[in-house]
Design a protein around this nucleic acid. Structure first.
Length: 280
DNA sequence: AAACAAACCTGTGCGC
DNA sequence: TGCGCACAGGTTTGTT
């Protein structure tokens, strides 16, 4: 569910509302959420620890603790982080609750119906062993300020369909299904084009489209779809979905050209929407 | 190296 | 109203 703009929106909320707070107590309902280590490891790692910062790399939320360890949260398909007043009733599928010391009396909830998401406390000094996929993460277009030359290199060094390449977190970190399709549409390039066949002009368009799309989506607080699964830590939805031009619009008229209908194909095993007239 | 399918889970929407 | 199926923002693993 959440991609870079949604995770960034959550990160900003954590930065404002959670950073600086010390954990009094940890409740782990469903062990699957902490499967990388264990229920006890999360409890031991967080109890009495203070969250000192909120960082993001791709779709990974990384919160350093005053213990020297780091809390990693990945929302995967259906995860949500919510800040709530202590004593209020958590929604169904709330698997982890952190109670904080001090005022206001608040908690941080991890809610995740599909249970693909996870939380783990790890030692950043041992990242290659404890968080191997994080060590191999690709360039984050926003955090790392991905340059046009950098993107060009990533494209030219491979011979892959753009859809699959842009979704590959080991190449570019943070782009998911929505922002991949939206970026390719804005760049006017088909998702099944092969990366090393792009002209310099096309690389420039794609670079600009990725940065512009992600930046605009962050400013809009991300995309909240019809199922309202994604919300920020205060439970508020984003509104970038009103700017979607192709995502989930198969069969509908292209907003950009007004002449062709949006087509749906399956690429990289994912539903993929594009305009056959605008995108070449 | 890259494409593809399946796996991990739960919920929702659709056709019948 | 109910049933069965397809599908969903992600990532890993194993197979061609």
């Amino acid at each position: 569910m959440p991609e870079l703009p949604e995770v960034e929106t959550v990160r900003r909320g954590i930065e404002v509302q959670v950073v600086g707070r010390r954990v009094r107590r940890v409740h782990v309902g469903r062990e699957r959420t902490v499967r990388r280590t264990s229920r006890q490891a999360l409890i031991d790692g967080l109890t009495d620890a203070t969250i000192t910062a909120a960082n993001r790399r791709g779709k990974y939320l990384l919160c350093p603790l005053d213990t020297g360890d780091e809390l990693m949260v990945h929302l995967r398909m259906s995860g949500r982080l919510l800040v709530a007043d202590a004593g209020t009733e958590p929604p169904p599928h709330t698997h982890v609750r952190l109670e904080f010391f001090g005022e206001p009396a608040q908690e941080l909830w991890f809610v995740d119906p599909r249970t693909f998401g996870e939380m783990v406390v790890f030692d950043p000094g041992n990242i290659a062993v404890e968080m191997p996929e994080l060590a191999k993460l690709g360039v984050d277009p926003i955090t790392d300020g991905m340059s046009r030359g950098q993107l060009s290199r990533l494209l030219m060094d491979r011979r892959r369909q753009l859809k699959a390449l842009l979704l590959d977190q080991h190449v570019v970190a943070g782009i998911g299904n929505i922002y991949c399709d939206e970026s390719l549409h804005r760049a006017k390039i088909r998702p099944d084009r092969i990366s090393d066949t792009l002209t310099a002009r096309e690389v420039g368009r794609l670079h600009e489209a990725i940065i512009d799309t992600l930046t605009a989506a962050i400013e809009a607080g991300g995309s909240t779809l019809a199922d309202t699964q994604y919300v920020d830590i205060e439970g508020q939805g984003g509104w970038f979905q009103v700017h979607h031009r192709v995502y989930d619009r198969a069969g509908q008229r292209c907003i950009t050209c007004g002449k062709a209908d949006i087509v749906r194909i399956v690429s990289a095993g994912r539903s993929t929407c594009f305009c056959p007239r605008c995108q070449r």
